[in-house]
């Protein structure tokens, strides 16, 4: 009769450790500002699309910082509105 797996192995297999690692990295990288991550991803997508159009790569050099500023501005403004009574 095979021996039952150790508690450590069981926890690894049932994914609880993986979930904990995932939660740690989510909190570390995203934390309480998912709007910044989503905003940056959208900005990157838009600029990638613009760069795929012929002759638009120089314009993208202006568009990307403008989009980043918009992402930062909305996040700061929303946080200030939430905190100000």
């Amino acid at each position: 009769m095979p021996e039952p797996p150790s508690p450590l192995l069981r926890r690894l297999v049932d994914g609880r450790w993986l979930a904990a690692i995932g939660r740690f990295w989510w909190a570390f990288l995203v934390g309480d500002t998912p709007d910044l991550v989503i905003g940056a991803a959208v900005a990157l997508g838009v600029v990638a699309f613009v760069c795929s159009q012929p002759g638009s790569r120089r314009e993208a050099a202006v568009l990307l910082p403008v989009l980043v500023i918009a992402v930062l501005g909305q996040s700061v403004w929303r946080a200030a509105r939430r905190r100000t009574p």
Binding site: L36, G39, A40, A80, R83
Partner: peptide, 23 residues
């Protein structure tokens, strides 16, 4: 670049809120 952008935006957001006295 994406990681740095997100990290930097988080640092900058916090610093602006603190400098303005909001946080």
């Amino acid at each position: 670049g994406f990681l740095l952008l997100v990290f930097g935006l988080q640092w900058l957001r916090k610093a602006v809120l603190r400098a303005a006295g909001v946080k």
